[in-house]
Amino acid sequence: MKEKMQPKMVIIGGGTGLPVLLRGLKHHDIDITAIVTVADDGGSSGRLRDELRIPPPGDVRNVLAALSDVEPLIVELFQHRFQNGNGLSGHSLGNLILAALTSITGDFVKAIREMSKVLNVHGQVLPAANKSVVLHAEMEDGAIVSGESKIPYSGKKIKRVFLTPEDIEPLPETIEAIRQADLIVVGPGSLYTSILPNLLVPKIGQEVCQAKAKKVYICNIMTQAGETLHYTVSDHVKALHDHMGCFFLDVVVVNNGQIPEDIQQRYAQELAEPVQDDSDRLTELGIRVIRDHIVSYEDQVIRHDTKKVASLLLSLITAPPSS
């Protein structure tokens, strides 16, 4: 009897949003490929990137930890960040291990593969490119801000983002995963600094536009100062479509759960507010909108409910095609 093939899901993102989603998905019987940004230039990742001339390992490290199936203490060790020590302070052990493995194997992608074996990772983790990229933002006043970590602090409204160098090549495995996918998931995560740096890698955006898979965007729950101040749901979607140059989303997932007033007030101090749901505009464009209570609160921090979102995505991947 022929074995049933696992549904194939490609998730594109970075930052804190992608690991949150993956922690729920790894418990399901699906073939996961996570495509992770390599535009980070701040903190430990930025230091290793500059000093060792390697792609920034931080976002990849967080995704590996989220998909790992080992003792919690091993994951805690991998994620440990040194608080002091000359030259060591601020670095996470996982970043240093990935940097060491890149040196040993001579290749960042090989380092990720070897670390995936050690951590018993459920699925495959692929950087959007096998070398560092620089993210730039053109502001509405025409000014250019360079560097992923600097863009949110420019104090200006973003018109568009773009990458250098222009001759970035995605991995063949990434292209193959997108072509074979049953479902492609974009987000959640910082719109301009975590999600778009993946989609702007030449060929990745084109392949996503052309892919036969259903494409889903998980909209952020809160706006982000310096990136999406006062953005509505349709503003997020418009930015994605404008940058991609194609109308590619089939489904948008929106939170309709209430956020406690005290948490809203705390976020308001950072100029963040709940993303306004104007998704009826998307329905008019033929995009299916799914509204659900998908918000959770970990230590007063707003996150997507990983189990709920995973179940929702699974229902999309297993649903029969609409007639």
Rank of each mutant, 00 (worst) to 15 (best):
M1K: 13
K308I: 11
E51V: 05
I74P: 00
S68A: 14
G17H: 10
Q180F: 00
G257F: 05
R61H: 03
I97Q: 04
E273Q: 09
V251L: 06
L285H: 11
D50L: 08
K214W: 00
K157Q: 14
V63P: 01
D69H: 08
K214T: 14
H27F: 01
Q79M: 14
K215F: 04
N95F: 09
E166H: 11
V60N: 07
D69R: 07
L93P: 01
P170T: 12
Q6K: 15
R179V: 06
K4N: 14
E169Q: 15
E76R: 09
I294H: 00
P188D: 10
H136Q: 08
R81W: 05
H243S: 15
K157E: 15
S311L: 05
P127V: 10
M9C: 11
H136K: 13
L98A: 06
P170S: 06
D59N: 10
K238V: 14
M5T: 11
G189E: 14
I104F: 11
L52K: 12
V70Q: 08
D59G: 11
E148V: 10
L77G: 04
G42M: 07
T228H: 11
H122G: 01
V237D: 12
V134Y: 02
V118E: 06
R47S: 09
V289A: 12
P170F: 03
H91Q: 09
R23T: 13
S132Y: 00
V185G: 01
L271W: 05
S44F: 10
K215T: 08
L21K: 00
I104D: 08
M244N: 12
L271S: 13
I204P: 07
R281P: 00
T318A: 04
P197T: 08
L119E: 06
M9S: 02
K203T: 11
H230S: 13
K110D: 11
P19V: 02
I30R: 01
V10H: 05
V185N: 01
V145K: 09
S149L: 09
G245V: 12
D292A: 15
K203F: 13
M5D: 10
L191S: 12
N130T: 05
I168V: 15
L229N: 10
V60Q: 12
L101I: 04
L316S: 02
D182G: 08
R47K: 13
L196C: 01
I151D: 02
G205F: 02
K26Y: 05
K157D: 10
R160D: 06
F162K: 04
C209T: 07
R179H: 13
L285I: 00
D31N: 11
A177E: 03
I144C: 07
E298G: 00
T283E: 15
A177Q: 02
E270M: 04
D167M: 06
E173L: 10
I221L: 15
P57T: 10
V309W: 01
S89D: 12
D50I: 03
L312N: 03
V208I: 15
I32W: 01
G90P: 10
I168C: 14
K26M: 10
A137F: 04
L21S: 05
V252M: 07
G257V: 03
N120G: 01
I302M: 03
K2D: 09
S323Q: 10
T223R: 12
A225K: 15
P320A: 11
G142P: 09
I195E: 02
L126A: 06
P172V: 12
V38M: 06
L183F: 04
I184W: 01
H230W: 12
T193L: 08
I184V: 15
L199V: 09
I178D: 00
L282H: 07
L135M: 03
